[in-house]
Design a protein around this nucleic acid. Structure first.
Lengths: 132, 132
DNA sequence: ATTGGTGCAAATGCTTTGCATAAAG
DNA sequence: CTTTATGCAAAGCATTTGCACCAAT
């Protein structure tokens, strides 16, 4: 992964923002420093950096994707009205931290554990060497 | 909510399918019984019925929305390769069930608790009577 | 020099909407 | 009869892609 000024500034600005911006929100911020940057570049870099594990892609909110410069494991709460995402502190314990300490002032309506993984079919395909 | 044959059959077929279909997947199934139905009708009905709490909209996967005819509280696991969603059984306990009993044959990579709620700002707006 | 990245515009894919017609209550 | 739902086509919106040019190694 080549280090370009675009990538550097995108990462820098994302880390500054604590509010899980969408690609276009971040684009507007980055544009102030790099007026000729294109939205496609922002998308491409966010995608690449999240694949590399440098940042985290938040795609479980049902609306626009959001991005998080903080990669330590933590949970989120999102608003069903405006879509914003905030961090939620949970007590450490198992891999699934189950008890909330702070819901960032939200009125909690529902919670749902989202597990991510590879399904049996894809695991089989992988073992047969048909993937990547 | 008026009961039309379209709505009835959409609900009926969704409840039959155990694999959390997308709107277009369900559309193809329903089309067999109502050849003149349009995809827009399927979308509109799924939206309405999920608002009414008759079905559940699964929009936290980052891909296409999926719909679930089973409304009892349960968690899901989704495949990062093919996008399919399966049910996951958790042990009962608090509102957040923390320990998995069965991950439906998936290799679990990550878990994340998704909380849904209303953010402080939207709560304020609501109290001022500016919403709904 | 080579390879990967960028900017632009066009394309894509899912979902929603406007509007005239049809059906439910 | 009144109101809500439907089908169709068009629009919307977030995201991705093709391509010619540019820059990092």
């Amino acid at each position: 992964m080549r280090m370009t000024s675009q990538r550097e500034i995108i990462l820098e600005e994302l880390k500054k923002l604590k509010n899980h911006p969408t690609a276009d929100e971040l684009y507007l911020v980055v544009k102030k420093r790099l007026p000729r940057i294109s939205l496609a570049t922002v998308y491409r870099n966010l995608e690449q950096m999240s694949e590399a594990g440098i940042i985290k892609k938040l795609e479980y909110s049902g609306r626009q994707k959001r991005f998080d410069g903080a990669t330590h494991p933590h949970n989120h709460i999102h608003c069903i009205r405006c879509g914003r995402i905030a961090d939620v502190k949970t007590r450490p314990g198992n891999s699934v931290h189950s008890i909330i300490k702070d819901a960032a002032g939200f009125q909690v309506i529902d919670d749902q554990i989202e597990f991510t993984g590879i399904c049996p079919d894809c695991l089989t395909t992988e073992n047969m060497g048909n993937s990547h």
